[in-house]
C-alpha cells in the first residue's frame, strides 16, 4: 500500500518537475509526501526542509534546465523514510548526484517530445482536436514516468543492498558531507542572486545581511522591513516618478503615487 503511494507521489513529482505549477516536485512537498506514504512523516518534513534550502535557486529559465529537484527529493526521501532508514545527512548527500541524473533524464524527455510535437502536427492536419489533446497528455505522462520508474527500480533493489552500500561509506566522508550540508545552500542563494543582482540592488543585500548578522529580529520582522524599504524606493526613485501617470492608458492611475497604483491595481 505504501509502495503504491510512493510511486504515485513520485509520478506527481515528475509531472510537476516539468509543469512547475502545483509544486509537488519541490523538496519540502515531495519529501513530506513520501515520508507520509512510508509512515515517517516527520523525517520527510525535516529532510524536505533541508533540501528545500539547497534547491532555492533551482529553476528553469528559458530553455536552460536546472538540476532536478524531483528525482533528488523523491529518492532521497524514500531512502530516509522508507525501509532503508538512512540518516538525513546521507540522504542529502545522495540527493545531489540524483539531481544531476534527473537533469539528464529531463533533457532526454524534452528531446523525445520533439517527435511528439510532430505527431500533434499530423493530428492538426486532420483537424482532430482530440488527437492533439491526447498527444499533449501522453507527453505529460512520460514526464511523470521519468521519476516514477527510477523510484520503482530503487524500491525493487530493496532496502538491504542500498543500506549496505551507504553503510560502507567511511566516517570521514559522512561527517564531511554533514559539514558541507550546512553551507551548500550558498549555491542556491548564489543562483538566485546571480539571476537578479544589478548594481542598484546589491546595497539591499548587504543591508539585509548586516541586520540579520547582528540582530535577533525574526523573519517576519525582516520581511516587514524589506517591504517598507522596497516601497520607499519606489516612492522616492526618480526612475518611477519622473514620468507621472500619463503613460498608463487603462489603469486607475492617479498620477505620481506608485504605492497607490500598486495597491489599487493589485
Amino acid at each position: 500500500m505504501s509502495a503504491f503511494f510512493v510511486v504515485l507521489f513520485a509520478f506527481l513529482a515528475g509531472v510537476e518537475g516539468i509543469l512547475d505549477e502545483f509544486q509537488f516536485h519541490q523538496p519540502i512537498v515531495a519529501a513530506a509526501l513520501i515520508g507520509l506514504a512510508n509512515g515517517h512523516l516527520m523525517e520527510g518534513v525535516v529532510l524536505g526542509g533541508t533540501l528545500q534550502l539547497i534547491a532555492l535557486g533551482w529553476f528553469n529559465v528559458g530553455a536552460a534546465v536546472a538540476p532536478d529537484a524531483a528525482l533528488a527529493s523523491v529518492i532521497s526521501a524514500y531512502l530516509v523514510t522508507g525501509p532503508a532508514q538512512v540518516d538525513v545527512h546521507t540522504g542529502i548527500a545522495v540527493a545531489i548526484p540524483l539531481a544531476v541524473a534527473g537533469q539528464v533524464l529531463t533533457i532526454f524527455v524534452r528531446t523525445l517530445t520533439v517527435a511528439l510535437a510532430h505527431t500533434a502536427d499530423r493530428y492538426a492536419e486532420k483537424g482532430s482536436l482530440r488527437g492533439v489533446e491526447m498527444v499533449h497528455v501522453l507527453a505529460l505522462i512520460i514526464q511523470g514516468l521519468r521519476i516514477a520508474i527510477p523510484t520503482m527500480i530503487v524500491m525493487a533493489v530493496g532496502a538491504g543492498p542500498v543500506r549496505d552500500a551507504l553503510g560502507a561509506i567511511p566516517k570521514v566522508i559522512t561527517g564531511g558531507l554533514g559539514v558541507a550540508g550546512g553551507f551548500i545552500v550558498v549555491v542556491g542563494y548564489g543562483m538566485v542572486i546571480s539571476m537578479m543582482a544589478t548594481p542598484q540592488l546589491w546595497p539591499f543585500f548587504f543591508l539585509g545581511f548586516a541586520l540579520s548578522a547582528v540582530t535577533q529580529l525574526n523573519l517576519i520582522a525582516m520581511g516587514i522591513i524589506g517591504v517598507v524599504i522596497a516601497l520607499l524606493y519606489l516612492q522616492l526613485s526618480p526612475e518611477f516618478n519622473g514620468r507621472g501617470g500619463g503613460s498608463s492608458n487603462g489603469g486607475s492611475s492617479n498620477g505620481g503615487d506608485p504605492i497607490d497604483d500598486i495597491l489599487n491595481n493589485y
Binding site: 550558498v186 542563494y189 538566485v192 542572486i193 537578479m196 543582482a197 544589478t198 540592488l201 546589491w202 539591499f204 543585500f205 548587504f206 543591508l207 539585509g208 545581511f209 548586516a210 541586520l211 540579520s212 523573519l219 525582516m222 520581511g223 522591513i225 524589506g226 517591504v227 524599504i229 522596497a230 516601497l231 524606493y233 519606489l234 526613485s237 526612475e239 518611477f240 500598486i262
Partner: peptide
C-alpha cells in the same frame, strides 16, 4: 523592481 529589492534584502538576511 519592488520584488527584486525585497528578494535581495531577504537573501541578505538568509545568508
Amino acid at each position: 523592481q519592488g520584488a527584486s529589492i525585497l528578494g535581495m534584502f531577504v537573501l541578505g538576511v538568509l545568508v
